[in-house]
Computed example of a mutant assay.
Amino acid sequence: MAAAGAVAALAWGEWVNRRWSRALVANGGGAAAAVVVLGYKNPRATANFVNRWRVRAGIRSIGTAAEHETCVIFSGGAVGSSVPEARLMAGYARSVLGFEGRVLLEERSATTWENIANVLPLLESADRIKIVSQPAHALKARAYLRRQRPDLAERLVRAEDYRPGEWLIVKPLLALHGVWTLRGLTADERKPPRRTAG
């Protein structure tokens, strides 16, 4: 019984995170893309585990074919320390991962709503917009973009912040936290779009 319960919890965590990663996105076209990586509270002078993972997920969201057309936007203010989360993430991307692509920093935000509000001017020229974080948090940010700028929200496409088996053991906990985090979203903001045949 215990083993069956554990398997069920893991399967549920996997399913709900996958579902969130596909909500409020479309199959947008166009060359120019913006990848927005949302910061996480960081009390130290170097990027913590969560921010390091988000940077890696952001870079893999670029896609090799579109790398020269993509701008990575790191967003996050000095919430946990005197150094903005955006700067810590950018430093990790450059110095540890060797990322040499185009980077912009948004260093004032203290909340997810502010993350979106403050990156809006940086998204105007993007044909495709990808928001990177844990799936529930990224979905919340996409919903906020739709509320603040529905025209830009039409350009949202999937990021590579969900992969089967990644974070497997903690996905049920992330899912529980996500259910609580997303309680303010409407039903149509939480579910993936219906796929039409043809």
Results as ranks from 00 to 15, higher is better:
71 C>G: 02
61 S>C: 07
51 N>I: 12
67 E>G: 07
67 E>P: 00
51 N>P: 13
48 N>T: 03
58 G>A: 11
70 T>G: 06
60 R>C: 09
55 V>W: 07
49 F>L: 14
50 V>F: 10
72 V>L: 04
60 R>F: 02
81 S>Q: 11
58 G>R: 08
83 V>F: 01
92 Y>K: 01
80 G>K: 09
53 W>A: 15
82 S>G: 12
48 N>Y: 05
74 F>V: 08
62 I>G: 01
84 P>E: 00
50 V>C: 10
57 A>M: 15
92 Y>E: 07
73 I>P: 02
74 F>Q: 08
62 I>P: 01
63 G>D: 05
64 T>C: 00
88 L>V: 10
67 E>K: 06
83 V>I: 15
83 V>C: 10
80 G>I: 06
67 E>T: 07
52 R>E: 13
50 V>M: 12
70 T>P: 06
69 E>W: 13
49 F>N: 13
83 V>G: 05
49 F>K: 14
71 C>R: 14
71 C>E: 14
71 C>L: 03
87 R>H: 05
66 A>I: 02
46 T>C: 05
58 G>H: 01
49 F>W: 05
60 R>T: 11
71 C>Q: 10
82 S>M: 08
66 A>G: 04
82 S>F: 08
62 I>C: 01
66 A>K: 11
65 A>K: 08
81 S>I: 02
78 A>S: 13
62 I>V: 15
66 A>F: 11
63 G>R: 07
50 V>E: 13
55 V>T: 14
55 V>R: 01
46 T>L: 12
77 G>L: 02
62 I>Q: 00
45 A>G: 14
50 V>S: 11
88 L>K: 11
75 S>I: 04
70 T>M: 12
91 G>V: 00
56 R>L: 09
45 A>Q: 14
